[in-house]
Amino acid sequence: MKIKVELFGSSRDFSDKDHLELEVEDKALMRDLRNEIIKYLDKNFKGNINFIKIVKSSVFCSENNNIVSDNYKITKNEKIAIIPPIGGG
């Protein structure tokens, strides 16, 4: 299934668009999506270490605006947001 990952903060450097579209298997968990993002970075940014660090230190937000763990089951066509380390104010 195709998943739209909305980009925020430092992850905006992953694409010229404001999101990524990645393919994951049906019944994929959030950790599978995290791995898919890393694969995307390997392919498109030669495994840029700083980008991969961002993905590893990020959490994810489900379509209904909850921060979810790596065990979260992604539903079909769900829109997910990546939340890199924060620092407002």
């Binding site: 925020f8 921060i67 939340i83 620092g87």
Partner: peptide
């Protein structure tokens, strides 16, 4: 979840490192 990108006098810019948000659910 708010992020800062600083812009500098030498035309460079950089996202600030920040602190990881903790998983809640």
């Amino acid at each position: 979840p708010i992020w800062k990108k600083e812009h500098y006098a030498d035309n460079q810019s950089e996202w600030l490192k920040g602190s990881p948000l903790v998983n809640e659910k």
